[in-house]
């Protein structure tokens, strides 16, 4: 009995002293979440509305690249991935934006953008597909959309309390702009949690393979970015860590060593210098 206590105390102490290690998977998530947390039509409508608002803000600062052929090509790659993506209630849209840096973003509701500079680093279509599929993954899992629901609920409590105490009916209203602020804050400041990135990578491996791409594309791209530009991404986990789990995921899904790179089609359509 005393032994058990000692073990527990030692474990607690060692965990405490070892400090914070990034990257717990969301192990508490239970299978029933798929059913219990399924978004309602109303949730989806809000998600699309706010996502559209957020991408509108991104486009205000970083306009679409004025190259219809390039846009059409990137959209086709994205659409062929989106065929196999769950959440068919969303319309996915893909575009290239003029923005500094190698990056890609997605907002709730299915808007996915990739920077022109990122396209310049890519060598083939499988790499592009990997990046787009990763972003689709964030949308499908609702990583940002969950914030919105949470924000709505938290304020809902205050709103109802205020109403209870006798405040005006509009006291607890949350504006569309505030909701959009939440999304922007998440995308550009807080970033995704490590388990959410892993989630999206897991999704990317499946989705690219299902669409016929080589699943290794995303990893190749990340490696090249790390080599040529360093790994200083404040909102993504270290590349070495991601490459490790990508390899494991490919093994887990049995999707290694086949699929297409689409390098010919890529070079015919993308003429962006890095």
């Amino acid at each position: 009995m005393r032994g058990g206590l000692l073990v527990a105390v030692t474990l607690l102490a060692s965990v405490w002293s070892s400090g914070v290690i990034a990257g717990p998977v969301d192990c508490r998530r239970r299978a029933c979440a798929q059913v219990m947390d399924a978004p309602t039509a109303e949730d989806v409508a809000v998600e699309v509305r706010v996502g559209r608002e957020a991408v509108g803000r991104i486009l205000r600062r970083h306009p679409l690249v004025d190259d219809p052929d390039l846009q059409r090509y990137v959209n086709l790659v994205g659409q062929s991935l989106a065929l196999a993506a769950p959440r068919g209630e969303l319309v996915f849209r893909f575009a290239v934006i003029e923005a500094p840096g190698v990056n890609a973003y997605s907002t709730p509701g299915g808007y996915v953008v990739v920077t022109r500079e990122a396209l310049g680093v890519m060598r083939d279509e499988a790499e592009l597909a990997g990046v787009l599929a990763h972003e689709i993954g964030h949308v499908v899992a609702g990583h940002v959309a969950k914030d919105l629901r949470l924000a709505g609920r938290s304020r809902g409590l205050w709103a109802s309390l205020i109403r209870l105490v006798g405040g005006g009916g509009s006291a607890g209203e949350v504006g569309l702009r505030e909701a959009t602020d939440t999304v922007m804050e998440r995308l550009f400041n807080r970033g995704y949690r490590v388990e959410e990135e892993l989630d999206a990578d897991r999704f990317a491996v499946t989705l690219t393979s299902a669409a016929g791409y080589e699943a290794e594309g995303l990893g190749r791209f990340l490696e090249r970015v790390a080599e040529t530009r360093g790994t200083a991404s404040p909102t993504h986990p270290p590349t070495t860590k991601r490459l490790g789990w990508l390899r494991d995921l490919i093994k887990e899904y049995g999707s290694g060593g086949h699929g297409h790179r689409g390098s010919g089609r890529f070079s015919r359509n993308v003429h962006v210098s890095p």
Binding site: A8, L11, L12, S14, V15, W16, G23, P24, V25, C27, R28
Partner: peptide, 14 residues
């Protein structure tokens, strides 16, 4: 109460 996660898939509580 306290809850600690020493690894990704294990939780300890007291």
């Amino acid at each position: 109460g306290f809850m600690v996660a020493p690894t990704d898939r294990i939780a300890l509580g007291v």
